[in-house]
């Protein structure tokens, strides 16, 4: 499907075709658009426990947004979100690319290794987050035991209760599960690069690093942009991994925006500000996606 042709002259669609799309549209409206509209509506109202039960809630204009954007908690959560997302995405992309390049070579057991790596991605985060919690526990965790065995540690280190190590820990846990996803997409990209291109470069005297930086990387660009965008969007809205590992703590060291919004709405029962936080949260990946689609279209036109 080439967008350029679609724009040039849209083929006429028989009216009955719309009937076939209708169930999907209704499903989308009921499961995506309605909750979305409900949340946005909520974000403009003063809604507490009583209003959420009985309905109603006075229109509050931009008060919720003002409270959120002016509040120290929201700003801290936004900053933590950006640090967490950018670092996780960068590491995940780098690890995914390294794995993809490695697994693009032919060697025995390659298929097995590929599938084994994907386990990290398909494992439910409830399971992986708790495995990480156990590994990193200060008293009986495997990491401390290993470090102690190597003579690198003489006292218990409580990885998840110190601000800096807690943030690093949730980033590692995130990268561990998202890197295989990046790997599989990048691997597909690598395999679409025709072999003769590399052969020609080799004949011209290009070394392995030159072939990687001058041929592989540029040809991988469209896939890379997609991978980075998908990683950003999924990482930005992470909730379960962090909630299970640290509940946003210690203090607010790992309180990213989704955790902040959850606490506002479901722990402190301030649904209006919680909805405002969620709505603002929605705008960031949305803006990135729009930017991405425009870039994509420009590339295809070119």
């Amino acid at each position: 499907m080439k967008p350029s042709r679609a724009r040039a002259g849209r083929p006429s669609v028989p009216p009955v075709a719309y009937a076939f799309v209708l169930p999907a549209v209704l499903f989308m409206v009921a499961t995506v658009l309605y909750p979305l509209a409900f949340t946005v509506d909520l974000s403009f109202r003063d809604v507490g426990l009583r209003e959420i039960v009985a309905g109603g809630g006075e229109f509050a204009g931009l008060a919720n947004y003002r409270a959120e954007l002016g509040g120290a908690e929201f700003r801290s959560a936004l900053w933590t979100s950006m640090v967490y997302t950018v670092v996780s995405v960068a590491l995940s992309f780098a690890a995914g690319l390294a794995l993809a390049v490695f697994l693009n070579h032919r060697f025995p057991g390659r298929g097995l290794l590929r599938s084994a790596l994907l386990v990290a991605w398909v494992l439910p985060s409830v399971v992986s987050a708790n495995i990480w919690r156990w590994l990193l526990d200060g008293t009986y965790g495997l990491l401390n035991a290993a470090l102690r065995g190597l003579g690198l540690l003489d006292a218990d280190v409580f990885w998840l209760v110190q601000p800096a190590t807690a943030l690093a820990s949730v980033i590692v846990a995130t990268v561990w599960s998202t890197a295989p996803f990046a790997m599989i997409l990048l691997l597909a990209g690598l395999q679409s690069i025709p072999g003769p291109v590399h052969e020609a470069a080799t004949i011209d005297g290009a070394g392995p690093w030159q072939r990687f930086s001058r041929i592989t990387l540029p040809l991988l660009r469209p896939v890379s942009v997609t991978v980075l965008l998908l990683l950003f969007v999924t990482t930005f809205k992470t909730f379960d991994t962090i909630y299970l590992m640290t509940r946003g703590g210690p203090g607010d060291a790992t309180t990213i925006l989704p955790i902040h919004a959850y606490l506002e709405a479901f722990s402190f029962f301030r649904f209006g500000t919680g909805a405002a936080a969620t709505t603002i949260m929605l705008l960031i990946p949305l803006a990135l996606s729009l930017f991405y689609f425009r870039a994509l279209r420009r590339e295809e036109v070119a």
């Binding site: 526990d137 218990d156 209760v161």
Partner: peptide, 15 residues
């Protein structure tokens, strides 16, 4: 122990 920042009451009982 500093680990108490990660312990619930059941963890404390186990210690």
């Amino acid at each position: 122990s500093k680990g108490m920042l990660g312990w619930n009451e059941e963890d404390v009982k186990n210690q």
